[in-house]
Nucleic acid binder design. Structure first.
Lengths: 129, 129
DNA sequence: TATAGTCCTTCCAGTAACTGGAAGGTCAAG
DNA sequence: CTTGACCTTCCAGTTACTGGAAGGACTATA
């Protein structure tokens, strides 16, 4: 599969996938005779995983660790489990924070009259500090 | 409140708060005689809101829009409502994606034996493409 | 009152992770 | 056999910080 089709399927810009290829995060499965990058199913899965992880603030290096751990058969699965457990905690914390952000904005939308009057109480709905 | 105390309260690095001050995103309430930045309760609220929004991929400009809309009394609350509604959609989508990421990693943790054997099936638990 | 330590300031340079654009090769359709 | 939409590499620019230097300010203790 060529890079633009891969980009469509996984929801990342072509430029970004090319960048990931450059830095060795997800290398293409192969190259066509003309030098075009080729991506297979497992590469697509990795890209989707990375897209999600990146969207939620995990660094490239953290993503790399998870992928590398899998691909390096010398590492033990205990390492993977430990790393994944740590990230799971992070994600659960993020879920709570995201819910708070949702609540704030949702309350804002509900309390705005939306009739053109500039009395929208956005600040009064801000998070408790 | 001085910048380091503010940083502690809102969960942002001092450097970042100073940066937000420099770019005019959240300006300090005032300055002490010595020129120290001073932050009050409402500034802290703005900082917490921005921290959350930034963590979930909203750009500085998107944050600025929400804050500016509030502070610009010439804007109508309908504008705020519309903008906040759009962001709310984004957040709901993010909640779904975050749940998927959580499921992936959680399944990974559960299926890893954690006994040192390198047979952890991380890739087989990747998202469906 | 001196001095040590921990703040604070500005400024400037560096980093992470893209992102845009130029210059040029490839390929299917008409 | 050319047009247009792909693809390639390379290099420069952007966003949002982040680290460090140089120096001023405040607090506690000797």
């Amino acid at each position: 599969m060529k890079i633009s089709d891969a980009a469509l399927k996984v929801g990342l810009p072509v430029k970004t996938i090319r960048y990931y290829s450059d830095i060795g995060l997800v290398t293409p499965t192969g190259r066509s005779a003309a030098g075009y990058r080729d991506y297979d199913h497992s590469a697509l899965k990795k890209l989707v995983f990375i897209r999600r992880a990146r969207e939620f603030g995990f660094s490239i290096d953290e993503c790399r660790d998870l992928l590398d751990l899998y691909e390096d058969q010398n590492r033990s699965s205990a390492d993977v489990k430990h790393l994944a457990s740590l990230r799971l905690r992070d994600i659960e914390q993020k879920q709570k924070e995201l819910q708070l952000l949702h609540d704030e904005l949702s309350h804002l939308v509900q309390s705005c009259k939306g009739d053109g009057r500039p009395d929208c109480p956005i600040l009064s709905n801000f998070a408790q500090v």
